[in-house]
Design a protein around this nucleic acid. Structure first.
Length: 573
RNA sequence: CGGAGCGUAGCGCAGUCUGGUAGCGCACCUGGUUUGGGACCAGGGUGUCGGAGGUUCGAAUCCUCUCGCUCCGACCA
């Protein structure tokens, strides 16, 4: 492609509304343009990356035995009513009516439609197992779209759905997808972790998230430094081996803590560490219960673990008014003594004694408190957030390290949630109807490209992994008005094209500075610079974007050298 | 949806408090000089000041309503 005939609108300055690096760089490199909140045009240069990502996904899905299909964006309400999600999904589901007033939604995911396909076309266990996938534009009317392609409302996703007659088959399908996902993200050249995850609203029995490691990631994950264990902190289990029951040595004592509300304030005021306090959180649940939760002072509650433990949809910190009513004190002074609601303590608290708790009165705390003697706890459970340094729940020697990650893929074992609701069954070998066991597997295409940039950039621009680069090499003619330079660059462009290399020729009549800045910004892995100075010696310059490494090549050898480098990089995957 | 903020040229912004002919930088167009890391000279075009209503002799500026966008929180590929 010739730059002068292309549309590659680069920007010198960052758009004001772009917060994260990948969004800024995708805008500046002319990959995307915003149409509305969370809705983007894929400009030619950006689309090439998207297509490459799709192709990698397609190849690996096919290799894993999945079959491509394409389902509609517009879904009839009927199917969603059948699964019960028409009511449950909430405002994120964009609903509309056709001219006959029939209700539809834009598909945010396609479990209903795929289940409808399979129940209508698959009747016998002999047609199974089956794994169908599509690469499709989804729409989720997010409350707060942000970060460009990282969290759009309209976005391209690969979603696959597996169907089996039994659990064992479903587990195999899950494992195949898990392995395929590993290959996909490896081929993209990304640093990632597959982590155990909470299966969330989509439901199902277990799931893994694929996280691209990046500082700007929205998710916190932990992984063991000794074994394979890795999990989203929302899910990460904590373990207390050989936990000792400590002996109380201190007397319970009421102390004045004037206006000392937060854990940090109270700890500083009493000249103690936050870990010597026990905090009491008043929690409200979707089942309309108010209860108290005890955690070591420096720990965070994991609301998802708590909600799962209680079997409720959500469990959140209660509003101030509820706290006041329940404890008789404003927030900041809650304590377990004298509360007449259910008390659940984090298991870590069982190993504590002589700690500080709130006094359930303004400006009052207790020191020297201990379990059993001063108050009773109804239940001990794992309800806190894991942090770096916690022991690994799987192996004996490991410690957890913490990371930030961008969720680019998610595999779920769904079980029979949808097949049961929508009556998707096949006849087994004894002629009995069996409910299908399903799995679903998503990859955010645009998000993965954004994550790749998030992980591969410097202050000058993008540093494309070869597998996702819109073009593999840039041929830059320093001065197109110099006939020798122009001819040499044209010759390279032709040769590279003939060798099957994806090449962009910068034939613009611009100053070298502009061309080099743009080259760094758009970040193609290789750059051949053709300038009068080196050409006099019959040489051109090859620059590797990632390392900055420069070398001079004979004009005649440059094309084959580039092909060799491209082939090596792609083979390495 | 709760809280905060912003809408002025293609992009980045000033001007709004204190009403009086709509500005700056970059980009863009023409001519010339320049050509290995975002050049220089000369000339040029560019706006329903987000929209509607109101106050006023006069509104980008004050008032009311509205729409859009961004940021912080809970949800997700």
């Amino acid at each position: 492609m010739r730059y002068t005939q292309y549309l590659l609108p680069t920007l010198k300055e960052n758009p004001a509304d772009a917060e994260v690096i990948s969004h800024q760089l995708m805008m500046r490199a002319g990959m995307i343009r915003k149409v509305a909140a969370g809705i983007y045009n894929y400009m030619p240069f950006g689309l090439r990356s998207i297509r490459k990502m799709e192709q990698i996904v397609r190849e690996e899905m096919d290799r894993a035995g999945a079959i491509e299909c394409l389902m509609p964006m517009a879904n009839p309400a009927e199917l969603w009513q059948e699964s019960g999600r028409w009511e449950k999904y909430g405002k994120e589901l964009l609903r509309f009516k056709d001219r006959k007033e029939t209700e539809f939604c834009m598909g945010p995911t396609h479990e209903e439609v795929i289940t409808d396909i399979v129940r209508n076309t698959v009747k016998s266990y002999r047609q199974l197992p089956l794994n169908l996938y599509q690469i499709q534009t989804k729409f989720r009317d997010e409350i707060r779209p942000r970060f460009g392609l990282m969290r759009g409302r309209e976005f391209i996703m690969k979603d696959a759905y597996s169907f089996d007659t039994d659990d064992a088959g479903a587990d195999k399908a899950y494992d195949r997808m898990y392995q395929a996902y590993r290959r996909i993200f490896q081929r993209c050249g990304l640093k990632f972790r597959a982590v155990e995850a909470d299966s969330g609203a989509i439901g199902g029995s277990f799931s893994h998230e694929f996280m691209v490691l990046a500082e700007s990631g929205e998710d916190a994950i932990v992984s063991c430094d000794a074994c394979e264990y890795a999990a989203n902190v929302e899910k990460a289990e904590l373990i207390y081996r050989n936990q000792l029951t400590p002996v109380a040595t201190a007397e319970l004592q009421k102390v004045d803590t004037p206006a000392q509300k937060s854990i940090e304030e109270v700890a500083a005021f009493l000249k103690l560490k936050p870990s010597q306090l026990v905090k009491t959180l008043i929690i409200q649940t979707s089942a309309d219960e108010v209860l108290a939760v005890l955690l070591r002072g420096d720990r965070e509650l994991n609301e998802i673990k708590l909600a799962n433990l209680l079997g409720v949809d959500w469990a959140l910190m209660a509003e101030d008014a509820v706290v006041q009513k329940t404890t008789g004190a404003p927030t900041g002074f809650a304590g377990p003594i004298g509360l007449n609601i259910r008390v659940i303590a984090d298991r870590e608290v069982r190993g504590m004694a002589d700690f500080v708790i709130g006094g359930n009165a303004v400006d009052v705390h207790y020191t020297g408190a201990s379990l059993g003697r001063d108050f009773e706890v109804g239940q001990f459970a794992d309800i806190r957030q894991a942090v770096g340094g916690d022991p690994c729940p799987r192996c004996d020697c490991g410690k957890l390290e913490s990371w930030r990650g961008i969720e680019v893929g998610h595999v779920f074992k769904l079980g029979t949630k949808y097949s049961e609701a929508m009556n998707a069954t096949v006849l087994d070998d004894s002629g009995k109807a069996r409910t299908l066991v399903m799995g679903c597997y998503g990859i955010g295409i645009g998000r993965t490209v954004a994550a790749a940039i998030e992980q591969n950039h410097d202050e000058n621009g993008i540093i494309w992994p070869l597998a996702l680069a819109p073009y593999q090499v840039l041929v830059s003619m320093v001065n197109p008005k110099d006939d020798a330079v122009r001819e040499a660059a044209e010759q390279l462009y032709r040769q590279l094209g003939e060798l099957g290399i994806e090449v962009l020729l910068d034939d613009r009549d611009e100053r070298p500075g502009i061309k080099f800045k743009d080259a760094d910004l758009i970040g193609l892995p290789l750059r051949l610079t053709v300038g009068a100075r080196n050409l006099k010696e019959g040489k051109v310059e090859l620059t590797q974007r990632a390392s900055g490494e420069m070398s001079l090549l004979e004009l005649g050898e440059a094309a084959t050298r580039v092909r060799q480098l491209v082939a090596e990089a792609l083979d390495a995957d």
